[in-house]
Amino acid sequence: MPGHRIFAMSFASIYPLYVQKVERKGRGKDEVDQVITWLTGYDEAGLARVIADEVDLETFFAQAPAMNPDATLITGLICGYRVEEIEDPLMQQIRWMDKLVDEVARGKKMTSILRGSAAQRA
């Protein structure tokens, strides 16, 4: 069974859209980086590398240094689906990232977005 089309999209094509979304709401790129780092374990250099290499989302998540175990605490609706009910693990990871960026754009506190963990990091 072929994967979803989104799996082949490059992280580099989605990342600037995330940044634009939060900047329109008065938030910053550093906050996008913080939630993506929290979720995946990529550091600043790692994010820069996957953007420069234009890796697809499937590879982005497969090579993530350390998916945060608290990611399972991410709940709610994104694109009309409850993220906690998405069965495909890769699609769920993509939607977790979407949900975190949405929460940044909505102005939620970082401690809440990061599910109470690691919020003191830059």
Rank of each mutant, 00 (worst) to 15 (best):
R115T: 11
E23T: 13
L90I: 07
T37R: 03
R49K: 12
R106T: 12
M1C: 08
T40C: 05
L39E: 00
A8H: 15
M91N: 13
L39V: 10
V22A: 05
G76Q: 02
Q34E: 01
T111I: 10
K25R: 12
A105I: 02
R82C: 08
Y15F: 12
A66V: 04
Y42K: 00
L57T: 08
W38G: 01
A64K: 02
R115H: 11
G116S: 10
I36Q: 02
S13I: 06
A118V: 04
E58H: 13
I6E: 12
M67F: 01
I36V: 02
L57Y: 13
G26C: 08
G76I: 05
W96I: 02
T40Y: 00
L47C: 08
I36A: 00
D70H: 12
M91D: 13
F11R: 05
A8F: 15
E87Y: 05
M9E: 14
D88C: 04
V83Y: 01
M67S: 05
V101C: 04
V22N: 02
W96K: 02
V35E: 02
A66N: 14
A12N: 01
K99V: 07
R24E: 15
Q93T: 10
R115W: 07
I6K: 14
S112Y: 12
S10P: 04
F11H: 03
Q20A: 15
D102E: 13
E31T: 00
I86T: 05
E23I: 09
G80P: 07
E87F: 06
V55S: 09
T72I: 10
I51A: 09
A8P: 06
V101I: 09
F11K: 01
Q63H: 13
F11M: 07
K109M: 04
S112M: 10
A64D: 06
I14A: 08
R106F: 14
L17C: 10
D98K: 07
P65L: 12
I78E: 13
A62W: 00
A64T: 04
G3W: 12
R27G: 02
E31P: 05
M110C: 00
T72G: 11
A45F: 08
T40E: 06
W38N: 01
R121F: 10
D88A: 06
T37C: 03
E84G: 14
W38E: 01
E44G: 03
M1A: 11
L90P: 06
R106S: 15
M9K: 15
I51G: 03
I86G: 00
M67E: 09
L57V: 11
R106Q: 15
V101H: 01
A52D: 07
A119H: 15
I113T: 05
E84I: 11
P16A: 03
I14M: 09
P65A: 12
K29T: 01
I94N: 10
E84S: 14
V55P: 07
V50A: 09
G46R: 06
P16M: 06
A119R: 13
Y18N: 03
T72K: 09
T37Q: 04
G26R: 05
A64Q: 04
A119E: 11
K21E: 14
T40S: 00
M110K: 06
A122C: 06
Q34I: 02
A71L: 15
V19K: 11
C79Y: 12
E23G: 09
G3M: 12
I51S: 06
E54R: 12
G3C: 13
K109E: 11
T59K: 14
G116P: 02
R82L: 06
F61V: 06
T75N: 10
I6P: 00
S117T: 14
R121C: 01
D56I: 00
E44K: 01
